[in-house]
């Protein structure tokens, strides 16, 4: 991000300036809430798989896939939360936003597969 000294931009410029809104802190907590939501959703999805009468190869592949998607989600969020500790945090990289959305979409798609798979 093209940061640097910008006399025309209001707000705290140096990293040590006081930020009365605690914006990075609030954003970090928002990320934490989001990872908790993702974890709860993944747990429900896992419970759904456990309820199958005869778990087979399809169920195993789905479980591994959803575990990896959850891991990717949490890792991306963790990296962003680390970036938030900088005094003047950089903007959210659009790639991170897109990857998070892709993870969520893939998890929803796994849900559809769980629902319509044979033997359900």
């Amino acid at each position: 991000m093209a940061g640097g000294a910008r006399p025309d931009v209001p707000g705290p410029r140096p990293a040590l300036d006081r930020d009365p809104g605690l914006q990075p802190e609030r954003t970090r907590l928002a990320w934490r809430r989001t990872t908790l939501s993702a974890t709860a959703m993944a747990a429900l999805a896992g419970r759904q798989l456990l309820e199958s009468d005869a778990p087979g190869a399809v169920e195993a592949v789905l479980a591994v896939l959803m575990g990896l998607l959850w891991l990717a989600f949490v890792t991306l969020a963790h990296r962003r939360m680390r970036a938030m500790t900088a005094g003047r945090p950089p903007g959210l990289p659009p790639r991170t936003a897109l990857l998070l959305v892709a993870c969520t979409l893939a998890l929803a798609l796994c849900g559809v597969v769980i629902l319509v798979r044979p033997g359900h």
């Binding site: 991000m1 940061g3 910008r6 930020d19 928002a30 903007g91 998070l100 969520t104």
Partner: peptide, 24 residues
Amino acid sequence: ATPDYRFSLANERTFLAWLRTGLA
């Protein structure tokens, strides 16, 4: 021009709130 980072962070939190809505 790059906006004040606080506005960008507020936008990011709105994005996360919508993402949580989707997850829910």
